[in-house]
Design a protein around this nucleic acid. Structure first.
Lengths: 209, 209
DNA sequence: CATGGTATGTTAATAAAATAACGACAATGC
DNA sequence: GCATTGTCGTTATTTTATTAACATACCATG
């Protein structure tokens, strides 16, 4: 039934979800691929093509039912299952992500942070405890952990990722400035600095010509 | 001379820079597109094709000189010029980014944060002052500001972006969960939650089949 | 100083993604 | 009811991106 889903489509799914949620919040009940395309600044064709990867759930002559479409996409992404997350590395970024409310809303729960620094270990971020790295493996074995957020310094990132993978973690959201790829692991490499540099290039390209 | 540079190439440039910097740090002086491709897990063809957008700077029979290539790419991205950055929104993420060391290393300097919350205004993050939003426009007029990092809550993001644009800012790095597009402005929309959801989809796809 | 091997820049081929076109079917208005 | 309009799912076309092929030039070696 389902065709192979390309990387490009996967990256667009959360965006569809975001806009549909907004439309639903505004009380919009039905929408056509044409109008949605205008709002999202993309083509109606692409929207229909994308949804068709999963079997298409609109109605001819009517369009899409916003609430239903939103729920279907949530289901496709895998929201509504709920996920338990740990943060490895309780520095600036790690703490900020641990305190980020938006995740909670979508069913992601952060259960613990891990760090080596005795200044932060034993404390907490909000009401999430900061535990020592030595406890990491045991924690994973005794608690459900679906996703690990990796925010350790560059030089420790690869080793930490290996440790997590060995302990049975199957998904890492990596904020360290190294690319991580391991067997039996899905990894999203964020590369903040790369994003800033891409912006810089565009800024100069826009001014330059 | 320069061909049109595609989005895909722009996004790869910082990654080339990152690997070349690492290689230089390891003392590697020369490298072929083949070896670089193996290290970066891409094809030699793509590397040569990418560099060729900017005129190609290798030597036949020899390869690329690591240091020189790194410098050329830095120049293409526009590093080495130095950039002054402000952070609008001094919440979790804003403060974390303001304290992030990696940017400094590449010539980015954060000069001020802005917020409305009286609990943070008047204070500082590291040695960067947190100023009231009311001062934002005046600050931009009297100081050089190349890039604004936008980390305000969702409901204020569009208005804040418009304000920044009107005040003359030409580049925004947006962390709010709304897509921002404005005339005469380059904008990098980070969408953290989208990234987490993409990871979630892949996690389920990997387990599911 | 010639000669062979190497690795480039570039052009050609392939693959993938985005867009457009179209036939079918439901909803709406007359 | 019946025609007409709207909008989907799907197939075809176009565009873009990636990979492969190749001819040329340069380094290294004897």
């Amino acid at each position: 039934m389902e065709k192979r889903v390309s990387e490009a489509v996967i990256r667009r799914l959360p965006r569809y979800y975001r806009y549909l949620k907004m439309l639903q919040g505004m009380g919009v009940e039905r929408i056509s691929s044409k109008s949605l395309g205008e709002i999202m600044e993309t083509t109606a064709s692409q929207i229909r093509q994308d949804f068709n990867c999963f079997g298409g759930f609109g109605q001819q002559g009517y369009g899409y039912h916003v609430g239903e479409l939103k729920n279907r996409i949530a289901e496709i992404i895998g929201l509504n299952k709920g996920y338990q997350i740990i943060v490895v590395g309780a520095g600036n970024i790690g703490q900020a992500l641990a305190g980020y409310r938006a995740f909670l809303q979508e069913g992601y729960e952060i259960t613990a942070l891990f760090d080596n620094d005795p200044h932060v270990v034993g404390g907490s971020v909000g009401d999430i405890p900061v535990l020592p790295m030595d406890d990491l493996e045991r924690f994973i074995q005794r608690n459900r952990v679906d996703i690990a957020i990796l925010t350790v310094p560059e030089q420790h990132a690869k080793a930490a990722a290996q440790l997590l993978c060995d302990a049975g973690i199957r998904a890492i959201w990596n904020f360290a400035p190294v690319d991580i790829t391991l067997e039996n692991l899905v990894c999203e490499n964020v590369q903040l600095t790369d994003g800033l540099m891409a912006l810089t290039y565009k800024l100069n390209a826009a001014n330059g010509q």
